[in-house]
Design a protein around this nucleic acid. Structure first.
Lengths: 220, 220
DNA sequence: CGGCATCCTCTTTGATACTG
DNA sequence: CAGTATCAAAGAGGATGCCG
């Protein structure tokens, strides 16, 4: 069967914004890029797990289109693994500012609470990178383990920067748990520590280490 | 008739990138924002003119959704004008970084030539702001008139910055004309002045003034 | 005119089932 | 695991009509 890979509907405008949207403006496309950006190499099944609700044929279509547009690369992993992995190309990685600005803009639209929404812990990496800063870069580094959603995540101070990534850590300075909206409110400064606890946040460990990276809260 | 304003399909994810796309991810939405950002207040008909190909019912639907989401504001202009105008709200204006990063990313995907694409001269304002700089901010200001597409546009140096806006100017230092791809190539540095002329660019006036704001070309 | 609403057709999406 | 096949529902595109 031949069908010329989607033909890629275009706005037909000589404008770089419109051209960008020709390529990554279709539904799901930027979320596929988000997944690959946050998790690196992904298998087809990993992507499905991070994109709840996507139809499997749509994911296959989109990956083909993004590959053709030079945003995504497909590689057949070597023998021991024997599976296909997808990852961003250089062009795809250049979408990071777009995704980050979208995420920044979307923060104000986040619901205070809605238990029906899907959640993956690594989605918190964007707000963590945007809102947390190390106020005492010369002090010894700290680590915070976040237990929200399925998999744990680590926040750590490295050379004055605050990084985060999936995974666990031995003997963290702080352990955070509870519902995602409470944690997000704490990270963005929309909730104070007390306010976040009211919303179900659980905090164990060194509160001073936590305060070192949190922004000043603007509300309760 | 009741129809609950589009119900606004959602990805259903607790992620600010997904939330942003819930609101401005639908087809045409970001281009509507682009139009309002570049042109300010617009009438319905102005928007249609800047969005060739949009179905009229879709534009009406989208404007209602964007209004409901607090991105766009509708105002009935006072008696003498007696028409409705649309403009961005504060939240809408905050989309500027998103649009700018999209435009930056899309530059590399622009075709070298394609006469079938629609074009409006004010669409050049994004690349102008991204690529042109005043290399001699202390020298007297200069003005460049661009005659590409239907309406003229002015580029001028103001306090060391390069600004652009629709309109004309008396006695400009340089007048540029010709096909849009040639002008874009010149602005982004993908074409030298000679290369742009080969592609149909017309230049009249003070070449030195022009060189003062252009980037170093990276190719011919 | 300016600002839509309706009607119709075509394409895209979503849900589910099935396959090498 | 990495998709393809199928089908119903929703959305997009185009033409036209309506009303102040």
């Amino acid at each position: 069967m031949v069908w010329y890979a989607g033909a890629m509907r275009s706005y037909g405008q000589f404008c770089s914004v419109a051209r960008a949207l020709d390529v990554i403006g279709d539904r799901w496309n930027l979320l596929i890029v988000r997944e690959l950006m946050l998790r690196g190499q992904c298998r087809y099944t990993d992507l499905r797990a991070g994109l709840p609700g996507i139809a499997t044929n749509l994911l296959a279509d989109r990956l083909r289109e993004l590959e053709q547009a030079g945003v995504v690369e497909r590689r057949d992993a070597p023998p021991p693994i024997a599976t296909t992995v997808f990852e961003l190309t250089e062009r795809g990685r250049k979408l990071e500012p777009v995704i980050r600005e979208l995420g920044r803009w979307g923060i104000e639209l986040m619901p205070d609470t809605d238990p029906r929404l899907a959640f993956r812990s690594y989605w918190l990496e964007f707000p963590v990178g945007l809102y947390l800063t190390d106020r005492r870069p010369d002090a010894p580094p700290i680590t915070i383990e976040v237990r929200v959603g399925e998999d744990p995540m680590v926040i750590e101070t490295v050379d004055g920067e605050v990084r985060s990534h999936p995974g666990s850590v031995a003997d963290p300075d702080v352990v955070l748990g509870g519902p995602a909206p409470a944690l997000l409110g704490l990270v963005t400064g929309k909730l104070s520590l007390a306010g976040a606890r009211n919303r179900g946040l659980r905090v164990e460990g060194d509160l001073e280490a936590l305060g070192r990276v949190l922004p000043d809260p603007v509300a309760s």
